[in-house]
Design a protein around this nucleic acid. Structure first.
Lengths: 186, 186
DNA sequence: TCCTGCTATGCAACGAGTTGCATAGGCAAG
DNA sequence: CTTGCCTATGCAACTCGTTGCATAGCAGGA
């Protein structure tokens, strides 16, 4: 289970409350590791019991108190150990690929609905790519990144950009293939 | 949950026993939808109760009997309905990306271990790509696919090929970045 | 001969992850 | 002024998915 480790990395990059972590997982981190606030609160509690993280109470005016979490030395040690462990092959769950193969057993109306859905899905990915590119211009304007942290965050972001570009090109291929199926043969 | 639908597509493409399904999920289908045999048996039972699939007992010489499952009309109807539903955004869980960002908080020895791990991971993906390309040459030698089913299977496979190529290029980028961190500055 | 591995199905227990709900004050729009 | 949204944390119940184990006959290698 790597949610613990994803949280450790996030807290080392910047201490945060559970709520803030959840929002960061919705934004940048969430692009390669998703988690709901429920999971994050539960795991933080377990990590606190294990001494991996420590909390500091922060009072705020006009809103509820929060607990700012930081990675503790045992957490850093656990992270270092985990970095040595083999990477598990990703468990792929690509719903769209299943639907595309399923379209072979649908009628033209069903395939038309799938085309519309793929177009919507494509627009989503186009928006994600635009967001990545804007983030890259904002956070990494200099091609030579100043420190290790920036260089590594940047290479992960480049991976996201490459992924989105690949998806967009593939979706064009998918749309052309789906449209060809119901085109009257000349 | 789309495991039901993935099984329906697999059974429409070719009726099979639970065991055979599990192996197909390990091979071709498993590249975009993973499932263990436990899950498959359990879900098949539920689908049978819902009337989505029917089983036919097949006796075999010298080995245990098996139950050959086929998609029933209610299953086909459920699949058609599902094709109209919006595609859920994929829940990404990319362990390697977490490790790469975590490498910012590791010492040079830890980063060296990660480099070795990335190289192993890269070799895995190179093997997957080779398997995809071999499968493409074997199953889709003709650029114009004969029927809808072949055309759609082919476009999904092309997606897998594009994904693996993108991953390999990105891993080269990752390796160069990681190696740069601990290179003595000139 | 024994050990390993393959086909074939399944139970039981556990851990991971989701969904719904609750609290509670503040802020902004209609 | 009321409805909805944002910050902030958390419980409870549920489903999904994994792991370990069991059965059982047969085939092949050490």
């Amino acid at each position: 289970m790597a949610l613990e480790h994803a949280i450790l990395v996030a807290l080392l990059e910047q201490p945060a409350s559970g709520y803030e972590l959840a929002r960061r997982f919705d934004r940048s981190i969430g692009r390669f590791w998703t988690a709901t606030h429920q999971q994050i609160y539960r795991v933080l509690k377990r990590m606190e019991a294990d001494g991996w993280v420590t909390a500091e109470q922060v009072g705020q005016e006009g809103r509820p108190d929060k607990r700012r979490w930081s990675a503790a030395p045992p957490g850093r040690a656990a992270l270092a150990e985990w970095l040595h462990a083999p990477v598990q092959p990703e468990a792929v769950r690509h719903e769209l690929a299943v639907k595309i193969r399923g379209a072979a057993f649908a009628d033209p109306a069903g395939r038309a609905a799938l085309v519309a859905e793929v177009e919507r899905y494509r627009a989503d990915h186009e928006a994600v790519l635009a967001r990545y590119l804007a983030g890259e211009r904002r956070d990494f304007p200099d091609p030579a990144d100043p420190d290790a942290r920036a260089a590594l965050q940047h290479v992960v972001l480049r991976g996201g950009i490459a992924y989105e570009r690949m998806v967009l090109a593939w979706l064009d291929d998918v749309l052309a293939t789906l449209r060809d199926l119901d085109r009257p043969t000349p």
